[in-house]
Simulated scan of single mutants.
Amino acid sequence: MEFFDYTIKEELPSRLNGGKTIINTLNPHSFCIAKKDPLFKKSLVSADYLIPDGVGIVLAVKILFGKKIRKVSGSDLHAHILDVANRYSLRVFYLGASENTLLKIKEKVNLSHPNIKVGWFSPPYKNEFDPDDNRLMREKINDFNADVLFVGMTAPKQEKWIYENIQDLHVVFASGIGAVFDFYAGTVKRPSQFWIRMGLEWLPRLFREPKRLWKRNFHSTPEFLFDIVKEKISPISRFN
């Protein structure tokens, strides 16, 4: 598991001559899912970078390793990559979400980052994709000649899709950023900076989507805190 002081602005240009960079995000809920889902765990651990998208991860690193790191949200990651892509006139592809959301993303990117060429595809809403689905998605991405791939299918689906398909993609960079698609498009409002600075971004989201997020906050969070306590008392490197 690798946490880092975010330097993607320098990382991406260095990869333009070959190779692929995968960045995944980690929060307490995804940590708990990964303990029970071997493929998801492999998808996270094999990434080039795993960034702390949650105050729980920041707290865990402080308690277990005595290191102070900062939260880097999927929205932060997306914003940085767009800045780099605009500077180098890259081609950015969005995979996931609805056609309406993707069109709003394209319009917004065109206004704020005019040097970027935007491609997109809205895959069918399924729990699992069949081989024809995966082949079509790979073709859409490669035919667009994408440099950057953002996948918005929510965890763990998006991370596993990248892991299982990356070798057949010609992209330089890939990342699963889930809810960022809707936040950026404006189809779902992200909590204000007040809640973000307080480390309580999850609270307004819970009130807005209780059916979807209750398990994350009332099951995974206590489980994660319990794991921190167990690891502090008797370290056994549960995740590595």
Rank of each mutant, 00 (worst) to 15 (best):
residue 10 E to G: 09
residue 13 P to R: 09
residue 16 L to W: 11
residue 18 G to Q: 13
residue 19 G to N: 10
residue 19 G to S: 13
residue 27 N to Q: 12
residue 30 S to P: 02
residue 31 F to M: 12
residue 35 K to R: 15
residue 37 D to C: 01
residue 44 L to K: 01
residue 45 V to K: 09
residue 46 S to H: 02
residue 47 A to W: 02
residue 47 A to P: 06
residue 47 A to E: 01
residue 48 D to G: 10
residue 52 P to V: 04
residue 53 D to R: 01
residue 54 G to E: 00
residue 55 V to H: 09
residue 62 K to D: 08
residue 65 F to G: 03
residue 66 G to T: 05
residue 67 K to C: 05
residue 70 R to Q: 12
residue 72 V to D: 02
residue 72 V to Y: 15
residue 72 V to E: 04
residue 72 V to K: 08
residue 73 S to Q: 09
residue 77 L to I: 12
residue 77 L to N: 04
residue 77 L to M: 15
residue 79 A to V: 05
residue 79 A to N: 12
residue 80 H to M: 00
residue 80 H to L: 06
residue 81 I to K: 01
residue 83 D to W: 00
residue 85 A to P: 00
residue 86 N to K: 08
residue 86 N to C: 07
residue 88 Y to K: 10
residue 91 R to C: 05
residue 92 V to A: 07
residue 92 V to K: 03
residue 99 E to M: 09
residue 103 L to I: 12
residue 105 I to Q: 05
residue 106 K to G: 06
residue 108 K to G: 03
residue 109 V to R: 01
residue 111 L to Q: 11
residue 111 L to A: 13
residue 111 L to M: 11
residue 113 H to V: 05
residue 114 P to T: 08
residue 114 P to V: 04
residue 114 P to H: 11
residue 115 N to V: 03
residue 115 N to A: 12
residue 115 N to R: 15
residue 115 N to C: 08
residue 117 K to A: 04
residue 124 P to M: 03
residue 125 Y to D: 06
residue 126 K to F: 13
residue 130 D to P: 00
residue 133 D to Y: 05
residue 135 R to C: 06
residue 140 K to S: 04
residue 141 I to L: 13
residue 142 N to D: 09
residue 143 D to V: 07
residue 145 N to T: 08
residue 146 A to L: 04
residue 147 D to M: 07
residue 149 L to I: 14
residue 151 V to G: 05
residue 151 V to T: 14
residue 153 M to I: 11
residue 155 A to S: 11
residue 159 E to N: 15
residue 160 K to Q: 12
residue 164 E to C: 02
residue 167 Q to K: 11
residue 167 Q to G: 14
residue 167 Q to R: 14
residue 171 V to I: 15
residue 175 S to I: 04
residue 181 F to I: 10
residue 185 A to C: 09
residue 186 G to F: 14
residue 189 K to S: 13
residue 189 K to E: 13
residue 190 R to K: 14
residue 196 I to C: 10
residue 197 R to T: 15
residue 197 R to S: 14
residue 197 R to M: 06
residue 200 L to N: 07
residue 203 L to R: 06
residue 205 R to D: 00
residue 207 F to L: 14
residue 207 F to T: 06
residue 216 R to M: 09
residue 218 F to L: 15
residue 220 S to T: 12
residue 220 S to M: 10
residue 222 P to E: 13
residue 223 E to P: 01
residue 224 F to H: 05
residue 228 I to E: 11
residue 228 I to S: 04
residue 237 S to T: 07
